[in-house]
């Protein structure tokens, strides 16, 4: 049981790292949303691995409930980001370049 937990938990941790490093790169918005979602799934995998109690045993339901909440929040956030991006493209279809941060 512990080996199983460990395998999945470490995989989750690696996926978090992969997703985060991709999310922080400069990419089109859609790629960054994918990256954030993948990192999120990594966190969920970590939670599920922690909840696992061995073959045939009922798992800890608390992390499961947390992950369910997390999944719904993630889809809401992705939808919001895509809606903003869509409006941005609609308003300036020429794609007039990235956000000019006045701090840059």
């Amino acid at each position: 049981m512990e080996t199983t937990q460990l395998i999945y938990a470490v995989t989750g941790a690696l996926i978090i790292g992969l997703g985060l490093s991709a999310a922080l790169r400069d990419e089109p918005l859609l790629a960054r949303i994918i990256a954030i979602n993948i990192a999120g799934v990594g966190v969920f995998l970590l939670f599920v691995a922690i909840a696992y109690r061995g073959f045939g045993q009922t798992a800890d339901p608390i992390p499961h409930a947390l992950v369910l909440t997390g999944i719904v929040v993630a889809v809401a956030a992705s939808g919001l980001a895509i809606a903003i991006n869509r409006r941005l493209h609609h308003d300036s279809p020429s794609g007039d370049g990235p956000a000019e941060d006045s701090s840059a």
């Binding site: 400069d26 089109p28 859609l30 949303i33 889809v75 895509i82 991006n85 279809p93 794609g95």
Partner: peptide, 21 residues
């Protein structure tokens, strides 16, 4: 659903934003 969302956004993205430097 997220997949469907991303696919539908793909149709929208006619010209991808140039990457930030």
């Amino acid at each position: 659903l997220t997949g469907a969302l991303l696919l539908s956004a793909l149709n929208d993205e006619t010209d991808p934003q140039p990457p930030l430097t």
